[in-house]
Amino acid sequence: MNLDFKIKNLLLICLIFLGVFNQYYSQTPHKNDFKTGADQPELYLPLLKGKTVGVVTNQTGLMKDRTHVVDFLVKNGITIKSIFAPEHGFRGDADAGEKVKNGVDIKTGIPIVSLYGNNKKPKPEQLKDIDIVVFDIQDVGVRFYTYISTLTYLMEAGAENKVEIMVLDRPNPHDGYTDGPVLKKKWTSFVGMHEVPVVYGLTIGEYGKMVNGEKWLRNGVQAKYTLIPMKNYHKNQRYHMLDKPSPNLPNDKAINLYPSLCFFEGTQVSVGRGTDLPFQIYGSPWTVGLPYQFTPKPNFGAKDPFLNGKLCYGENLSAYSEDLRTLNLEWVIKAYQHYKNPQQDFFLKNLWFDTLSGTDELRKQIIAGKSMKEIKSSWKSDLENFEKIRTKYVVYEN
């Protein structure tokens, strides 16, 4: 009798648990229900019908079935006057910093206008007769990744020339947290246009809303801005990317390590450009105490890589298991401590490290021997102030 009673109780508990689980599961959005802005044409096609359109995109402007958004728009009778190509080009095959040329898309015959090099902001004549520009690029949510700067210049040109800007939103692989030094105005550049931290915790669509709402465009102008939001997107989830966002961010691991390792670009240390593991390794000929060895050589993603042909000593982080949701400075600090080269300083003379950091304070803190904990605590106040701005423009739940 006692055993039967226990079994009945156990069954009752199981039934209650299943009921609660089913209720939760039926009400919780799942990754299978997730859609990017591009995958919801019912939201944007009616807004584009009968208009002359420009498109800012690259190889990442894909729909779920891998149809490119430009091909989809043409197929659906949308008149596209120009494709505007950001850093790395329309097909995403140009090196970082390499000149992106104007041309014609072979598949559609649509003219391609470069938005890199000397023409980062569309000129009035390039927007002539265009009613609306659609922006669809997979960003990585890091301040020095230049697609948010391209969007800023586009919005500014749109505001000045009465051209609407529409953003088809995509996931941010560094969403749900903020970290890093907040940029100081003195260090404004194409790799940091606004006073935001290195990791700012907004999708590119939310970021555009913030730029517009805070009147950060030149002369305080505001663009006519339309956001096509994602469906069932959650900031703390991570989503598969249909294509690599640029040649040297080939996979999720490189993207995850990118905010922490990109500081090396301002030093005498390679981040693996010219190897099979870009942004997953680091090293230098002058850090011989570190265990991993590699030699950068020209390849698809780096025609003339930094430290080309030189044996480098460093670390291989490609098997680093942690999903970083924080900026990790231990590698930069460790490389600085191991660096021995009487001819050249660890930091490049052009102060590119400070430009990437958005401040000269981080470099000075590393030279002074500050710990990662001490450095990160110095960011606290600025991050709290930024959070007050950021929360005004959040569209999606955590």
Rank of each mutant, 00 (worst) to 15 (best):
K6R: 14
I7K: 15
L11T: 07
F17T: 14
N22F: 10
G37N: 08
T52C: 09
T60F: 00
L62F: 01
M63Y: 00
A85P: 00
E87A: 05
D105P: 06
I112G: 02
S114A: 08
K121T: 07
Q126L: 04
D131T: 00
D131L: 08
V134R: 14
I137E: 04
R143E: 06
Y145G: 01
E156T: 05
E160W: 00
L168R: 07
D175V: 04
G176M: 06
L183F: 02
K186D: 15
M193T: 06
H194I: 03
Y207M: 14
Y207F: 15
M210E: 09
Q237N: 12
Q237R: 15
Q237V: 09
H240G: 12
D243G: 07
N248Y: 11
E265W: 11
E265N: 06
V271S: 04
D276P: 15
V288I: 10
C312I: 10
N316F: 01
S318F: 05
A319C: 02
E322Q: 13
L327M: 06
L329V: 12
Q337C: 01
D345W: 00
W352Y: 13
L362M: 04
K364V: 01
A368C: 10
K376I: 02
S378F: 05
S378Q: 12
K380S: 05
L383R: 10
L383A: 07
N385G: 04
F386E: 12
